[in-house]
Deep mutational scan, measured.
Amino acid sequence: TLFEALYDYEARTEDDLSFHKGEKFQILNSSEGDWWEARSLTTGETGYIPSIYLAPV
């Protein structure tokens, strides 16, 4: 399942991933609670993103 960003997000740590509204992600690991490891389909970068900023596509 792909997810789309509902809002912009600016990374706060080196493990976080910055993204823009409308960016799409492949989720790599969603077992860490509210922060999911994801790969951006726009940039190819991976990192942790807040799941509350996402909606399934």
Results as ranks from 00 to 15, higher is better:
residue 1 T to R: 12
residue 1 T to C: 07
residue 1 T to V: 13
residue 1 T to A: 13
residue 1 T to P: 12
residue 1 T to G: 12
residue 1 T to I: 14
residue 2 L to V: 13
residue 2 L to R: 05
residue 2 L to Y: 11
residue 3 F to M: 08
residue 3 F to A: 04
residue 3 F to D: 00
residue 3 F to G: 01
residue 3 F to W: 15
residue 3 F to L: 03
residue 3 F to N: 01
residue 3 F to I: 02
residue 3 F to C: 05
residue 4 E to R: 06
residue 4 E to A: 07
residue 4 E to V: 13
residue 4 E to T: 09
residue 4 E to I: 14
residue 4 E to G: 03
residue 4 E to M: 13
residue 4 E to Y: 15
residue 5 A to E: 00
residue 5 A to L: 05
residue 5 A to F: 01
residue 5 A to S: 06
residue 5 A to R: 00
residue 5 A to H: 01
residue 5 A to I: 01
residue 6 L to C: 06
residue 6 L to V: 08
residue 6 L to T: 06
residue 6 L to M: 11
residue 7 Y to M: 13
residue 7 Y to S: 09
residue 7 Y to P: 00
residue 7 Y to E: 10
residue 7 Y to T: 10
residue 7 Y to D: 09
residue 7 Y to H: 11
residue 8 D to R: 04
residue 8 D to L: 02
residue 8 D to E: 07
residue 8 D to F: 04
residue 8 D to K: 05
residue 9 Y to C: 04
residue 9 Y to L: 04
residue 9 Y to V: 03
residue 10 E to F: 10
residue 10 E to H: 11
residue 10 E to A: 11
residue 10 E to W: 09
residue 10 E to I: 14
residue 11 A to W: 03
residue 11 A to Q: 07
residue 11 A to M: 04
residue 11 A to P: 05
residue 11 A to C: 05
residue 11 A to K: 10
residue 11 A to E: 03
residue 11 A to D: 02
residue 11 A to Y: 02
residue 11 A to V: 02
residue 11 A to H: 06
residue 12 R to V: 12
residue 12 R to S: 12
residue 12 R to P: 09
residue 12 R to L: 12
residue 12 R to A: 11
residue 12 R to N: 10
residue 12 R to W: 08
residue 13 T to H: 15
residue 13 T to C: 13
residue 13 T to L: 10
residue 13 T to P: 05
residue 13 T to S: 14
residue 14 E to C: 08
residue 14 E to Y: 10
residue 14 E to Q: 12
residue 14 E to T: 12
residue 14 E to W: 09
residue 15 D to K: 15
residue 15 D to H: 15
residue 15 D to A: 13
residue 15 D to S: 15
residue 16 D to K: 15
residue 16 D to A: 15
residue 16 D to Y: 13
residue 16 D to M: 14
residue 16 D to Q: 15
residue 17 L to C: 03
residue 17 L to G: 01
residue 17 L to R: 03
residue 17 L to V: 06
residue 17 L to S: 02
residue 17 L to K: 03
residue 17 L to H: 03
residue 17 L to D: 00
residue 18 S to G: 08
residue 18 S to A: 07
residue 18 S to Q: 04
residue 18 S to R: 04
residue 18 S to T: 09
residue 18 S to Y: 02
residue 19 F to Y: 03
residue 19 F to I: 09
residue 19 F to N: 00
residue 19 F to H: 01
residue 20 H to I: 12
residue 20 H to P: 05
residue 20 H to K: 15
residue 20 H to Q: 12
residue 20 H to S: 14
residue 21 K to P: 03
residue 21 K to F: 04
residue 21 K to G: 04
residue 21 K to A: 12
residue 21 K to R: 11
residue 21 K to V: 09
residue 21 K to S: 06
residue 22 G to R: 02
residue 22 G to A: 04
residue 22 G to K: 04
residue 22 G to L: 03
residue 22 G to D: 03
residue 22 G to F: 05
residue 22 G to Y: 06
residue 23 E to T: 07
residue 23 E to R: 00
residue 23 E to G: 02
residue 23 E to H: 06
residue 23 E to F: 03
residue 23 E to L: 01
residue 24 K to G: 02
residue 24 K to C: 08
residue 24 K to I: 15
residue 24 K to L: 15
residue 24 K to N: 06
residue 24 K to P: 03
residue 24 K to E: 05
residue 24 K to T: 09
residue 24 K to A: 05
residue 24 K to M: 13
residue 24 K to D: 01
residue 25 F to R: 00
residue 25 F to T: 00
residue 25 F to I: 02
residue 25 F to N: 00
residue 26 Q to D: 07
residue 26 Q to H: 11
residue 26 Q to T: 11
residue 26 Q to R: 08
residue 26 Q to A: 09
residue 27 I to L: 07
residue 27 I to F: 03
residue 27 I to T: 02
residue 28 L to Y: 06
residue 28 L to W: 05
residue 28 L to Q: 04
residue 28 L to V: 08
residue 28 L to C: 06
residue 29 N to W: 07
residue 29 N to M: 07
residue 29 N to V: 08
residue 29 N to A: 08
residue 30 S to E: 09
residue 30 S to I: 12
residue 30 S to D: 13
residue 30 S to V: 11
residue 30 S to H: 11
residue 31 S to F: 10
residue 31 S to H: 10
residue 31 S to C: 10
residue 31 S to D: 11
residue 31 S to Q: 12
residue 31 S to W: 10
residue 31 S to G: 13
residue 32 E to H: 15
residue 32 E to Q: 13
residue 32 E to M: 14
residue 32 E to T: 13
residue 32 E to A: 12
residue 32 E to I: 11
residue 32 E to V: 11
residue 32 E to D: 15
residue 33 G to C: 09
residue 33 G to A: 14
residue 33 G to R: 13
residue 33 G to P: 15
residue 33 G to M: 13
residue 33 G to I: 11
residue 33 G to V: 12
residue 33 G to E: 13
residue 34 D to N: 08
residue 34 D to S: 10
residue 34 D to F: 13
residue 34 D to Y: 15
residue 34 D to L: 11
residue 34 D to A: 10
residue 35 W to L: 09
residue 35 W to F: 12
residue 35 W to Q: 07
residue 35 W to S: 07
residue 35 W to M: 12
residue 35 W to E: 05
residue 35 W to C: 07
residue 35 W to R: 15
residue 35 W to T: 07
residue 36 W to Y: 06
residue 36 W to A: 02
residue 36 W to Q: 02
residue 36 W to S: 01
residue 36 W to T: 02
residue 36 W to V: 07
residue 36 W to H: 01
residue 37 E to C: 11
residue 37 E to T: 10
residue 37 E to V: 15
residue 37 E to M: 15
residue 38 A to R: 00
residue 38 A to L: 04
residue 38 A to I: 06
residue 38 A to V: 15
residue 38 A to M: 07
residue 38 A to P: 00
residue 38 A to N: 00
residue 38 A to K: 00
residue 38 A to Y: 04
residue 39 R to L: 12
residue 39 R to Y: 12
residue 39 R to M: 14
residue 39 R to I: 14
residue 39 R to D: 02
residue 39 R to A: 07
residue 39 R to P: 01
residue 40 S to N: 12
residue 40 S to L: 06
residue 40 S to V: 05
residue 40 S to C: 06
residue 40 S to D: 03
residue 40 S to A: 06
residue 40 S to R: 12
residue 40 S to F: 03
residue 41 L to K: 04
residue 41 L to Y: 07
residue 41 L to A: 05
residue 41 L to R: 02
residue 41 L to D: 04
residue 41 L to E: 09
residue 42 T to E: 14
residue 42 T to M: 10
residue 42 T to N: 09
residue 42 T to L: 14
residue 42 T to G: 07
residue 42 T to A: 12
residue 43 T to Q: 02
residue 43 T to L: 02
residue 43 T to M: 01
residue 43 T to H: 04
residue 43 T to P: 00
residue 44 G to L: 07
residue 44 G to S: 05
residue 44 G to Q: 07
residue 44 G to V: 01
residue 44 G to T: 03
residue 45 E to Y: 10
residue 45 E to H: 11
residue 45 E to Q: 15
residue 45 E to R: 14
residue 45 E to P: 00
residue 45 E to W: 08
residue 46 T to P: 01
residue 46 T to A: 08
residue 46 T to W: 08
residue 46 T to Q: 11
residue 47 G to C: 03
residue 47 G to Y: 07
residue 47 G to V: 05
residue 47 G to W: 04
residue 47 G to H: 07
residue 48 Y to W: 15
residue 48 Y to E: 03
residue 48 Y to R: 15
residue 48 Y to S: 07
residue 48 Y to T: 07
residue 48 Y to H: 08
residue 48 Y to P: 03
residue 48 Y to I: 11
residue 48 Y to Q: 09
residue 49 I to L: 07
residue 49 I to R: 00
residue 49 I to H: 00
residue 49 I to G: 01
residue 49 I to D: 00
residue 49 I to K: 00
residue 49 I to V: 15
residue 49 I to A: 05
residue 49 I to Q: 00
residue 49 I to C: 03
residue 49 I to P: 00
residue 50 P to V: 05
residue 50 P to G: 06
residue 50 P to C: 10
residue 50 P to Y: 14
residue 50 P to K: 12
residue 50 P to M: 13
residue 51 S to P: 08
residue 51 S to G: 07
residue 51 S to W: 13
residue 51 S to H: 11
residue 52 I to P: 06
residue 52 I to S: 15
residue 52 I to R: 14
residue 52 I to Q: 13
residue 52 I to M: 13
residue 53 Y to T: 04
residue 53 Y to R: 03
residue 53 Y to C: 08
residue 53 Y to M: 13
residue 53 Y to K: 04
residue 53 Y to V: 06
residue 53 Y to N: 04
residue 53 Y to H: 06
residue 53 Y to Q: 04
residue 53 Y to P: 01
residue 53 Y to G: 06
residue 54 L to A: 03
residue 54 L to N: 00
residue 54 L to P: 00
residue 54 L to V: 12
residue 54 L to C: 04
residue 54 L to K: 01
residue 54 L to W: 01
residue 54 L to D: 00
residue 54 L to Y: 01
residue 55 A to P: 01
residue 55 A to Y: 09
residue 55 A to H: 10
residue 55 A to I: 15
residue 55 A to W: 10
residue 55 A to S: 11
residue 55 A to G: 09
residue 56 P to N: 05
residue 56 P to D: 05
residue 56 P to Y: 06
residue 56 P to H: 06
residue 56 P to I: 09
residue 56 P to L: 09
residue 56 P to R: 06
residue 56 P to A: 10
residue 57 V to G: 04
residue 57 V to E: 06
residue 57 V to C: 08
residue 57 V to A: 08
residue 57 V to L: 11
